[in-house]
């Protein structure tokens, strides 16, 4: 950012993550595994980015490089203003990371592990205690605070991982499948907590998920990764619009009617149905019906379908993500959230 820009206070132009040509090749028995093959990405401060992709796509490996855990085989990245290769210590002080696996040690007690984490980040005794109380409360872990980690349920464990990652309220938070293993209630709580944190402090959030609805509803920006490459990047809405558009399906009494209707509206007939591609199904349906009415054609049924991120993935790769795990749960709606301060 230039001096002038900072003077006029262009807040959202602060770059949190820049990566160029990031690669990781693991040596393995059956030949080297190219886990990440040349990832370029830029994330601005305050963004909420979801990294979506099937198992083995290279999501965790990318995160592990960005969090200084793995040295890249090639390429470079700057995270929170510092190079991951030359200043890993500076990067680590500024980020939070919630890994795909567990963050807490089996032999420790819940509160003890949080205390250690506070000390690791150089928080004062009092500050740590206040943060712990706040996190235990909001992640509903108060009842298990003195329990040994070993005895926690999967979901409780995951919530503890999240508390550990948030102890120092980092400016940049990496989450690797944070909601896996959580029940709908806990997922909603988790998201509420993360979104509140973001609204309050403008934390940049970079997360991976298998849950399509999560990526769809929460993230302003979705990056789709497959076979170690980013194959799409944009808002969920833009990705869906760019690819498929809404599909309107009209049903008719006879195949003959359907074919006539198809000619009339410029759709595609198959059997007694006509499909029609549109940018906005909710506006297209009444309009199409009026048009057909005036041509003397009567539709028996009408429906439209919004494309999902799965359709995006399907159209990009020819494979479906759907089987990876269906998501259920209530998530605060992106549209209802207040705007996010970025500085």
């Amino acid at each position: 950012m230039s001096y002038i820009e900072s003077k006029v206070g262009l807040m959202s132009t602060e770059t949190m993550i820049t990566a160029r040509g990031l690669r990781k090749t693991f040596p393995a028995k059956g030949g080297p595994v190219e886990a990440v093959r040349g990832v370029d990405l830029d994330v601005e401060a305050g963004e909420l980015v979801a990294f979506l992709g099937p198992n083995g796509a290279g999501k965790s490996t990318t995160l592990r490089m960005l969090t200084t855990l793995l040295p890249p085989s090639a390429g470079e990245a700057e995270v929170a203003g510092h190079s991951i290769a030359r200043e890993p210590g500076e990067v680590r002080r500024r980020i939070g990371y919630i890994g795909q696996r567990s963050s807490a040690s089996n032999s420790q007690r819940v509160r003890d592990e949080l205390r250690s984490q506070g000390a690791f980040y150089g928080l004062g005794r009092r500050e740590t205690r206040d943060r712990i109380d706040e996190l235990l409360e909001s992640l509903e872990l108060v009842a298990v605070a003195t329990r040994q980690v070993q005895s926690l349920s999967g979901g409780q464990r995951r919530r503890l991982d999240i508390a550990l990652g948030l102890i120092h309220a980092p400016a940049l938070l990496f989450l690797d499948e944070p909601s896996t293993g959580l029940d709908p209630h806990s997922r909603a709580n988790l998201w509420q907590h993360i979104l509140e944190l973001r609204d309050r402090t403008g934390t940049t959030i970079f997360l991976t998920t298998h849950y399509l609805d999560e990526a769809d509803q929460l993230a302003e920006r979705v990056m789709v990764m497959d076979h170690g490459e980013i194959i799409a990047d944009g808002t969920a809405t833009a990705l869906k619009r760019g690819l498929a558009g809404d599909t309107v399906t009209l049903g008719f009494e006879t195949g003959e009617d359907a074919r006539a209707a198809a000619v009339q509206i410029g759709g595609e007939a198959s059997g007694q149905a006509v499909t029609f591609a549109s940018d906005a199904g909710e506006h297209a349906v009444p309009q199409l019906l009026r048009q057909l009415d005036s041509a003397g054609l009567r539709a028996e049924s009408a429906e439209y379908r919004r494309p999902t991120l799965d359709d995006v993935f399907l159209s990009l790769t020819g494979r479906s993500l759907r089987e990876e795990g269906a998501a259920h749960g209530t998530i605060p709606d992106a549209a209802e959230r207040p705007a996010v301060p970025t500085a």
Partner: peptide, 10 residues
């Protein structure tokens, strides 16, 4: 995985 967490800590 908890060791990994300490490796990311400063």
């Amino acid at each position: 995985g908890s060791h990994e967490r300490t490796l990311v800590a400063p």
